[in-house]
Amino acid sequence: MAPSDHGLRLRAEVERPGLLVLAASGEVDALTAETLQLALALGLPATTVLDLSELTLLSAAGLRVLVRAAERAATEGRRLLLVADNPVARRLLTLARLETAIPVHDSIEEALQR
């Protein structure tokens, strides 16, 4: 696998005050989960939308990061919303039953309407 095909890439966009869209692409595994964890822990606004649509891998380590981030957001009175319109991320979120704990949407637009 070429180096450009591996790893995790994050892109943050401030949509408006109090709202951050964080797009993740590539792989969230044991080697990259800490990067995602740090991104979800540092000074987040009232609402964060995490777009998982371009992930090619989401491991158990990545799922743990999502659970912890959702718990922290709830404790701090913030919202964490997920976007997962690809079969890889959606299937894993469904199998792990995370959809019952973290709102999962098919698009950023749908998430922002809630």
Rank of each mutant, 00 (worst) to 15 (best):
N86S: 10
E76A: 11
A101T: 12
V67T: 07
D106H: 13
A12T: 12
L92C: 03
A61G: 06
V65T: 04
A41F: 01
A69R: 05
A2M: 09
E13Y: 09
A46P: 00
L82N: 10
A39S: 09
L81I: 06
A84W: 00
G62T: 01
D106W: 07
E15M: 12
R16G: 07
L95P: 09
L92G: 05
P45K: 03
G43W: 02
A84D: 04
L44W: 03
T56V: 10
S53Y: 04
L31F: 10
Q113G: 15
A70M: 02
R72E: 14
A111T: 10
R97I: 02
T35E: 09
A41W: 02
S25W: 02
A111R: 08
E54K: 11
V65H: 03
S53T: 13
T35F: 00
R64I: 00
P45V: 01
D5N: 10
V21L: 15
A84T: 01
A33W: 00
I108C: 15
E99P: 01
Q37Y: 02
L40R: 01
L50H: 10
A101D: 12
L98H: 04
R97K: 11
L66N: 06
A24Y: 06
L22Y: 08
V104D: 13
L31R: 11
L112K: 07
L98R: 05
R78P: 06
A41P: 03
L40C: 02
Q113Y: 05
L81F: 09
T56I: 03
T94E: 14
S25I: 01
L58W: 01
L20M: 11
A74S: 13
L63M: 10
L52F: 02
T56R: 13
L58G: 03
L44D: 06
R78C: 08
L57A: 12
R64Q: 07
N86I: 01
A74I: 00
V14T: 15
V83W: 11
L55M: 07
D51E: 11
V28E: 08
T94N: 10
S107D: 11
L31N: 12
E76Y: 00
L52C: 09
L112G: 11
L8D: 02
T56A: 13
A60E: 06
H105Y: 15
P3F: 08
L36N: 04
P103K: 12
V83K: 12
N86Y: 03
P3S: 13
V21E: 11
A33V: 00
L81H: 12
E54S: 15
L98M: 10
L31A: 14
P87Y: 02
R72C: 08
A33P: 00
T47M: 04
T75A: 15
T75R: 14
L80K: 06
E110D: 15
A41M: 07
L95K: 08
A46T: 05
S107M: 09
S4A: 14
L40V: 00
R68T: 06
P103L: 12
V88I: 14
T35S: 05
Q113N: 14
T48F: 02
P45W: 01
A12I: 05
